[in-house]
Design a protein around this nucleic acid. Sequence first.
DNA 1: TAATTAATTGTCCCAGTGGTCAATTTATAG
DNA 2: CTATAAATTGACCACTGGGACAATTAATTA
Lengths: 198, 198
Amino acid sequence: MARTSIEEIRRRELTDAAYEILQEQGIAGTTLAKVAERAGMSKGIVLHYFRNKDDLLEAVMRLANALLRDEVVRRMRRAKGDRGRIEAIVAANFAPSFFKPEICNAWLSFCAEVPRNGEFARIQRVIHARMRSNLMPALRALLPAAEVEAAAIGITAMIDGLWLRFGLSLGSLTREQALAEMDRYLAQLLGPGAASAV
Amino acid sequence: MARTSIEEIRRRELTDAAYEILQEQGIAGTTLAKVAERAGMSKGIVLHYFRNKDDLLEAVMRLANALLRDEVVRRMRRAKGDRGRIEAIVAANFAPSFFKPEICNAWLSFCAEVPRNGEFARIQRVIHARMRSNLMPALRALLPAAEVEAAAIGITAMIDGLWLRFGLSLGSLTREQALAEMDRYLAQLLGPGAASAV
DNA sequence: TAATTAATTGTCCCAGTGGTCAATTTATAG
DNA sequence: CTATAAATTGACCACTGGGACAATTAATTA
């Protein structure tokens, strides 16, 4: 059993609480006091475990990022073949446990601050880079070299676009529609493939 | 010559100033004091012409929206044929005067608040609805009925996704790449068409 | 048990914010 | 020129939020 220090536990509890509040209330609404209350602790403790508010928010984004990364990894392990790997990546991004309006809102709040927060920007770059490096090998195996780059951009853009629309227009875009749209796009790009398991 | 009241002038000056600050500093950074200073007025005057901060921000979003709408209208007028109309809509969304990181940041700040601001949500719905109603007639003329809906979602998602990526990953995605990506997508969707003029 | 360290609390502070308002300046009209 | 209305200012207020910190409590260790 892994030894878990109090510090690790508290940081995780506070990060979880902050993630919840962020989803509900956005960055401005994510107040140290609210986070502390949600976590059932005093406000003072928050700044005992995090240098400042930005530090806490960074932890939140790393958490959200890790959650997505794990989902992708889990599905890629099960995937068969290059096409299967790409479908796994897509499916992970639209997994029911992630593809929720509240989570989209959290990402959106985060993205909106990227231009003014160097560390946020760094995390963002890491996320993009990972997505890309997950996609590329399979795309290289499936497409002529000249098309690989454009395909990678296209897939990520389509994912992001559907997320955005999903998060904003409550109810007017369903998860099923989003998945169908991705399938359709992949079919155009890579030719018809097996129906992806959800 | 249209009679322009002082009130109209001031509101526009303040809205312009707020739009600038929003692009640079996000919603939280868009302070009444900063807006007033940028517009060369006193802080008091801002709340003389706008009920409150949200009211001002709404005006900003309506301005940004109007700027995009005008660009779309202008290009659609020049467009020939259904395919041309769709290309015009796309081209408008990527026009050099709009497709700028700062403007993307402003939109992002706005989108991030949509879930918590009813009026923002309303404006957002209007924008989506207009985009859709611009697209639909041409798509209906070009595609089998069963594909129209998915095509509309796909095009808007691709546009949004490219915008998002463009705004966030400074420099790693160029306007040219984004346009190429859209052309490619439209070609897949509607078959090869004339190279769209920029 | 005593001493030391770690965890946690609650208070205090201060800068900054949106918002109000009476006072003042400027324009308009009689 | 005067009176009235409109435009504009700047001082002021209440409040909130992030952050600092001394004090307290709980846990460890000797």
